[in-house]
Design a protein around this nucleic acid. Structure first.
Lengths: 248, 248
DNA sequence: AAAGAAGCTTGACCCTTGTCAAAGCGAAAT
DNA sequence: ATTTCGCTTTGACAAGGGTCAAGCTTCTTT
């Protein structure tokens, strides 16, 4: 189950870190002409500092955004302040799909580190899709993939217990990072314990305790935000049975 | 927050129960020509008996299905048998969107009563979308709406407690039924306690107990599958604060 | 460099919900 | 009509995770 995580635009090689927008934010085999058309539509990238909002729930929706570099979270908030983190996004992944239905963004998108996105004006992508069938198809697939991802999160939130959720979360991060050319078993968490907890339907104390527990078992090494997976197979064992669990 | 529930194709009037597929399974203002084109693509409806699978996870994906009459559940299952119900669908709502990403259905769809669906071959809808921009746009909106719905389920599963989940669930059913011309405060549950529990991330005993609790408070009357909302405002009070909660 | 704030860990306790079990009820089949 | 099976309700108990609180580390800010 390869990279069916967050709406990844492409199985991109991050090795080419200063590649053109075209290569980064882009789908499948287009010919030269189509490439040019697409380039004309994609707005040059925007930079955000850590903590900055890319968009907020309730704002008018005009564009999708693809992460070029950096790290984001998306979240929906309830009136009484409860926050549900709905996803963590890394390079190549798309944000804003929920805004299409109502022309209003349905969640907040916040940079968790200094980041760079490229903007895809939806109207223009939509009409371009009519000229380039493979592009249209690609967009349908992206949206569908997001739905699949969400369903897997539901499975996680509805059926798994704390340890399983955490294990699935770590393995998912690991897998997505390695897809992007980073170490699979040694990485930095970009988000706080509280944000992890919100995503997993747990309190931050439970996240912390569970990480400690994994460490005591010798499965991982936790040094603040620095995580090493020493025995990833043990984590996999935990979530085995919970199929799909690695595609959260 | 009107009918942003399950991917509802249209704010359809169910009063016209034997209307043409065109009227039922159809989007926004198309002209006569476009109507005809669409009619040519939509396959006549298929009937299913209670308990029958419309499709299964893993089967090849070729078509979306719109509920004409009846009631469905969709669910994803893990290898060890755990089932997560991901949605309950009623007339006008769409199933199968998760299959687009991989050309394989990602969930099971099962009729909870004798039902009728119409089939929308996706390839042909896709190409028709290129000819009819408003149809294309409508499809993007439908998929986006499903994503919004899923995010709200995440909020429910991640943040709400049993009573809030149940209340949100009942209010959501109520609202969707009334949209379709049925009584808002007096309805039959088409699904078992276990299926409700699976959807809400609760055990069936908790569902049963919570319903009993609501009844003791005089908020609802429970007679097996027959539910009456006596004081829906009390239920609303329960989920107030949990914004979006009525759009599960 | 110092001070403050924010984030993290850990402990103790408690509450909500899950688990196990038994009994009731209704629907469907014989 | 009777039996059977599945679904539901309810109780007793257990446990997983939440809550509250204290202390600690690290990062920011000045």
């Amino acid at each position: 189950m390869s990279d069916n995580n967050h709406t990844s635009i492409h199985a991109l090689k991050v090795s080419c870190s200063n590649c053109s927008l075209r290569e980064l934010c882009l789908p499948v085999g287009l010919n030269r002409d189509e490439m040019t058309q697409l380039d004309a539509v994609i707005r040059q990238s925007r930079r955000l500092k850590r903590g900055e909002y890319l968009f907020r729930s309730g704002e008018g929706f005009k564009s999708l955004f693809a992460v070029r570099t950096g790290f984001f979270k998306t979240s929906v908030a309830s009136q009484d302040g409860r926050e549900q983190v709905t996803g963590f996004l890394m390079s190549g992944e798309l944000m804003g799909l929920d805004g299409i239905s109502s022309n209003v963004h349905g969640c907040d998108a916040i940079a968790l580190e200094d980041s760079e996105v490229c903007e895809l004006p939806f109207n223009r992508m939509e009409s371009l899709g009519r000229d380039i069938p493979s592009l249209q198809h690609h967009f349908f697939r992206l949206m569908s993939r997001e739905i699949v991802r969400d369903q897997n999160v539901m499975l996680l939130l509805g059926n798994m217990k704390a340890e399983e959720r955490l294990a699935a979360f770590l393995l998912n991060l690991s897998q997505r990072l390695s897809t992007r050319g980073f170490a699979a078993n040694d990485f930095i968490l970009r988000m706080s314990r509280e944000e992890i907890g919100s995503f997993l339907g747990l309190k931050l104390e439970t996240v912390s305790r569970t990480l400690s527990k994994f460490q005591q078992q010798g499965w991982i090494v936790v040094d603040h935000k620095h995580i090493q997976l020493v025995k990833p197979e043990e984590l996999k064992h935990l979530v085995s049975g919970c199929s799909h669990a690695n595609s959260v």
